[in-house]
Amino acid sequence: MALLSVQGIHTAYDRVNVLHDVSLDVEPGKITCILGSNGSGKTTLIRSILGLTPPNQGDIVFEGASLVRLPTHEIIARGIACIPEGRRIFPKMTVEENLRTGAYRLSDSAEITRRAMQVYELFPRLKERRTQLAGTMSGGEQAMVSMGRGLMGKPKMLIIDEPSLGLSPLYVKENFRIIREINGMGITVLLVEQNVRQTLVIAHHGYVLSQGRMAASGTTEELSADAEVQAAYFG
């Protein structure tokens, strides 16, 4: 059974209908990707799942229970975490405080410290800078903070929205390596990307959004082979 199942949702944003009858399944333990150009509705889909812009129709089911109409913090409490587009770190908090916001729902301080240690193991750079204000760091380092923060909640499913946006090619490559590593820890990943080729390499299953509708879906091998999809959406 799918871990997350989006079932025919319609979502309006500022009164304009952005998503039309969109469905998708995220299989547990896999990396599922959503591809699509700018303005195709990828971010609105993520916002719908997180309850920031709830759908008007359709259902979103996580582990068999509906998420629709739940406030965002309760959706997060079900075991979902998000590394938002543009990283959205808290600029006037230290690296360590940023990580602690990611474990906000947890009250066991020993466990929070243990998880922070795991994040520092994954990103040694953050350990060196744990008392630095996150807003004063470089874009690549902020991306690490955002990733680490997303991992602090030990989510069952991690949503990663456009992680390579605005990063240098070196960091982009590093990012994809880390996403694979996160998936290797047993965390299900829902990855939103514009960077088609590298995404198809690491993902297992993919969906293509176009103008608010699901245009294609399949395993990444199928999507890579589909000449029509290639021509239409990936250029």
Partner: peptide, 22 residues
């Protein structure tokens, strides 16, 4: 205090961290 600062700096991201905004 951490939650208050998170909400002050970026309310929407604070919600995505599981903080009950209201």
């Amino acid at each position: 205090g951490l939650a208050i600062r998170a909400v002050a700096q970026d309310g929407e991201t604070a919600r995505v961290m599981g903080i009950n905004f209201n």
